[in-house]
């Protein structure tokens, strides 16, 4: 499960939906892995305003990932018109002034879309229910008395 998804998933119990303690779900005994993906700059730009930044920071802290800045970056920070050094050789005159992914965007891509929780548990801070994650698949089936 991608770190991105952890920023959107909630406890499946209806009673928890309204409780601030229920979000974000707390990762426990998490085994992480990096699954490489093509960068999709327009997707990151689309989803950035929808992130709960404080929850993202908390989850990154609990998983021992990088420290994030205290406030969310603005969409303007995702692109730069200055070619990155590594790209300079490949940039031809025509697209030298096209907006390019900034280092921040690359870092967000790695964090949100490539860093995944392969196994562990997600725990609701309101009801204490534990959702198992195995081989990247989260089990959100509830026993009928909890629906």
């Amino acid at each position: 499960m991608k770190i991105l998804t952890l920023n959107f998933v909630t406890c499946a119990r209806k009673a928890c939906k309204a409780s601030p303690a229920a979000f974000p779900l707390r990762p426990r005994e998490a085994e992480l892995e990096i699954v490489e993906q093509d960068i999709n700059p327009l997707f990151v730009r689309n989803v950035l305003p929808r992130l709960e930044w404080d929850a993202l920071r908390e989850v990154c802290g609990e998983l021992g990932l990088q420290q994030l800045p205290s406030t969310a970056p603005s969409p303007d920070d995702l692109f730069t018109t200055t070619p990155a050094a590594a790209d300079t050789a490949m940039a031809d005159a025509a697209d030298a002034h096209e907006p390019r992914p900034s280092q921040l965007l690359r870092d967000l891509h790695t964090l949100l879309l490539e860093t995944t929780m392969r196994s562990g548990k997600l725990v609701c801070g309101n009801c204490g229910h534990e959702y198992a994650v195995k081989e990247g698949i989260a089990n959100f089936l509830l026993p009928s008395h909890l629906v």
Binding site: T5, F8, V9, T10, A12, E52, I137, L142
Partner: peptide, 14 residues
């Protein structure tokens, strides 16, 4: 990302 879930129980996203 894959979730083992019953949509008849609800949709667990904010």
């Amino acid at each position: 990302d894959l979730f083992l879930a019953d949509a008849g129980q609800g949709v667990p996203f904010r």
